[in-house]
Design a protein around this nucleic acid. Structure first.
Lengths: 226, 226
DNA sequence: CCAAAAGTGTTCCGTCTACACCCATGG
DNA sequence: CCATGGGTGTAGACGGAACACTTTTGG
């Protein structure tokens, strides 16, 4: 390794994952108790350090994989946090990533293994260091984008009912939506396909199952809800 | 210094500034020739390393101050770039910041001193490392936000005409705007104040000068153009 | 007197919003 | 047979888009 920048200082670089899930009609986040010093035992996001042989994005995906066993998950950089004393131990720069997962894909064994749990947004405890701020930014970002990018489908199974989809929007935006207006808009979006399948779990009558056709979306990626 | 994270690797952490200015009815960016190895002589954004005693945000402001002599400038984090080999020399994580300045505030001596110049957006050369990508993200971000946040005023003098303001929007959004509709909207925004002053520089008839009342905006910060 | 930029309203159309009832089924 | 969630249409309000001419004055 050469030493071009030898007279400058280095810092630890970490990633922290803000993992959103949708469960029981609520938006939830994965939280755990910090298992290392400093701050051991405090509520915290799940994170890890960036290794020399991986990009920051790759580190985020690796850390999420360690936590959930899931790959190819929607992840987006939220912001980088770099206050001098944000970590009580040493100088650590941390890059916050937002992930959207389908709770049903999550192996509950891993959840216990890592000592993390789903916490309802709005019932968030005080978190380690600047993690509350990270969450806040991620939520703001999610709210901003969910009406102009097809993010909601990441929080749902492949097949979902329109009621489920509506509940995701209501949970993220924190407001009620008129059912008829919502369905009217969805019908105009041709990459949200109605299938022949019927969900009989949540209603006696049965509800049509829909699917997000990613291929079709990719051909003409535009999305506007509302 | 303690050594909590001793077994992990550190990296250099840098900031790069994407400095936007509005001049001659064009959106421009500050660019220079890189003055250090590796990549000496290549077109590049202006950047610097984060010091141990400053936050990442502070580093960005310091670097911008070195470059422009200006303080209290609008700056916003764009994204963090962390590919393994993004810097040919060593492992460097770089946090890109977008700055909006009023070109008239810029001391042209400093411009020469630092060997930087204003380059029109769209006439951007190939830049060092991933700097083109940084610029692209910054532009996307600026376009997204300029219609919902009062950013345009940062690119103008304290007093400006409505024509100038419109030209900023046209330059950023890359599309023409109807003058009557534009002015109608502006009139509804009460923190854009008409002054008694008249600008006689750009027109024989003279144009009313307006001012952004930041105090008034802060009391009720909401902004929607279009 | 004319070139050059400033300033000013109205109409139309499409989009969003509000709103209430019937349907199918399992228990 | 009834409780539960699924599914459907219309009318009125509102906001955005299109569009052309008059004013002022320095040179």
């Amino acid at each position: 390794m050469t030493t071009y920048y030898g007279d400058h200082n280095k810092a630890f670089v970490a990633v922290d994952c803000i993992v959103f899930g949708f469960d029981n009609n609520k938006l939830k986040l994965l939280m755990g108790r910090r298992k290392m010093d400093p701050g051991r035992g405090e509520w915290s996001l799940y994170g890890g350090f960036v290794n020399p042989d991986e990009s920051v994005d790759e580190a985020a995906h690796r850390v999420l994989f360690e936590l959930t066993g899931l790959k190819h998950i929607y992840m987006k950089q939220v912001a980088t946090f770099g206050a001098v004393d944000r970590d009580p131990g040493e100088r650590v720069i941390s890059i916050a990533y937002c992930a959207l997962i389908n709770v049903k894909d999550y192996d509950n064994k891993l959840l216990k293994e890592h000592g993390v749990e789903w916490v309802e947004l709005g019932k968030m405890p005080k978190l380690y260091s600047d993690h509350n701020e990270m969450v806040k930014k991620a939520v703001t970002m999610l709210r901003r984008r969910i009406s102009s990018e097809p993010l909601s489908f990441n929080l749902l199974p492949d097949l979902f009912t329109l009621t489920q989809l509506q509940l995701v929007y209501e949970a993220v935006l924190g407001e009620e939506i008129d059912k008829r207006n919502f369905r009217k808009r969805i019908k105009q979006i041709d990459f949200i396909e109605k299938t022949e399948l019927i969900d009989k779990v949540t209603s006696k009558r049965g509800a049509a199952l829909y699917r997000f056709n990613k291929r079709m979306y990719m051909e003409e990626p535009s999305f506007k809800l509302k």
